[in-house]
């Protein structure tokens, strides 16, 4: 399972990181608390959040996450896009709410840590 498989199966738009869609997905994590993600998500996890501000790009980069899905029709800030792009982070957006995103990821076989 890689990020491309997720993009192909869920109604998500690729905002940044087109070149990194081959990132393998090792599991999933959902949280809006950044230190919780830092401490609990595993490397290669796909992260579902409602946060759209620029600090999510640093978290994903430093924690070595496969991709971020910004759920609930939250629009990422322009700075977020810029940072995610420069760090090579895959940023996906969707109108689906978090619960629905996680459910669909689970259906694809992606599990929590």
């Amino acid at each position: 399972m890689n990020v491309q498989d997720v993009v192909a199966s869920l109604p998500v738009a690729v905002a940044t990181g087109q070149q990194a869609l081959t990132n393998p997905v090792t599991g999933g994590y959902a949280s809006d608390l950044l230190s919780n993600v830092m401490g609990q998500a595993a490397a290669g996890n796909i992260w579902v959040t409602m946060q759209g501000h620029q600090n999510i790009a640093a978290v994903a980069s430093l924690a070595g996450l496969a991709a971020i899905i910004i759920a609930g029709d939250v629009e990422p800030a322009p700075e977020t896009l810029r940072k995610a792009d420069s760090e090579g982070i895959v940023l996906l957006t969707t109108t689906l709410p978090v619960f629905e995103v996680v459910g669909r990821l689970y259906q694809l076989g992606i599990r929590g840590v």
Partner: peptide, 9 residues
């Protein structure tokens, strides 16, 4: 509100 301050740092 930005998701910091979870008391996990």
């Amino acid at each position: 509100e930005m998701g910091f301050g979870a008391g996990m740092g």
